[in-house]
Design a protein around this nucleic acid. Structure first.
Lengths: 160, 160
DNA sequence: TGTTTTTATTTCAAGCTTGAATAATTGAAG
DNA sequence: CTTCAATTATTCAAGCTTGAAATAAAAACA
């Protein structure tokens, strides 16, 4: 192959500049994808991402989750969980049940309707992601997962 | 080498599962980083990310940007830009100036105070990112940038 | 010219999100 | 047992965000 002019990579660029470039690209890509998922969820199911996220968490634990557990899992505030669960409950997708022995807490469970709705949304979601990330081959995917794992590890060590 | 006849409709291949895994990790990493940047901006400068983003866009164009240009650059709604610029103007960080020959549009510019404030925030921001992404070496960074570029390319082709 | 269409921006209602303040309950210490 | 601290959840004000509707001005066109 030819040894034409190299486009992008400046060899003397400090590493911190490259880290910043990476961050901007990472943020842009995930924002684009997230917005698109949000758009499709809204257009095709009149749903929202926060509700999908809460239902997703609940779907993995049939016995239910406490509000505070949802809050920790999704890394959102308690007040936020209250609002989203209120909406899910209004729509008959989730319900609060008492925790025996602790009158402060509630367990939140998906209703049967909630389970069915989530199953439908989750299947569509998986297909959308497959579609949107279709431009990446197996090598790209594994390469990114590897590095994202490394990044996540260093962030977790620092409680971020 | 196949595992037999596959139904046409369900592309539930191993690769699609890997794409979903990647998406969840990508979203988690960028959310963690974004939340942390947001937290520091708030804690150290009483600032917010949307204002930082708008100031960042404005800082690159001293002659100013129209509201709609900001909206397109940041991929946020017009109404959103109005609110954020209002706040920046209230704080004396940005100003609207008339566009000669077009009474519909405004040019938004950073004030001197806005320029100084943004320079300070941007320097801190770059240091934060360098800190937060410190766990990635040059190879990791270039590897991710390469793949994120590839992803961005396929998304752009589809106007996402 | 006058009419229609496009462009630029603002306003609005609704929803998401946070951190702080509040209230209720549980657990621990004395 | 009583007091004090920690846990759980809700409420609240403030800000971000969107898409749709409204307003105004410019551009295209007949």
């Amino acid at each position: 192959m030819t040894t034409g002019p190299q486009p992008d990579i400046a060899p003397d660029t400090p590493l911190s500049k490259e880290r910043l470039r990476l961050w901007l690209k990472l943020l842009k890509a995930s924002s684009l994808l997230e917005d698109e998922v949000r758009r499709r969820l809204r257009a095709e199911y009149s749903g929202t991402l926060p509700r999908f996220d809460v239902m997703s968490a609940l779907s993995r634990v049939p016995e239910g989750l406490k509000m505070s557990e949802i809050s920790k899992m999704l890394r959102v505030s308690n007040g936020n969980v209250t609002v989203v669960v209120d909406k899910l409950a209004q729509d008959g997708l989730a319900q609060r049940v008492a925790v025996p022995g602790d009158r402060r807490a509630n367990l939140v469970q998906l209703t049967a309707k909630g389970q069915a709705t989530f199953a439908e949304h989750a299947a569509a979601h998986e297909a959308w992601i497959d579609d949107l990330l279709g431009g990446l081959n197996a090598d790209d995917i594994e390469g990114m997962i590897l590095r994202l794992d490394r990044l996540a590890e260093t962030l977790e060590e620092r409680d971020i």
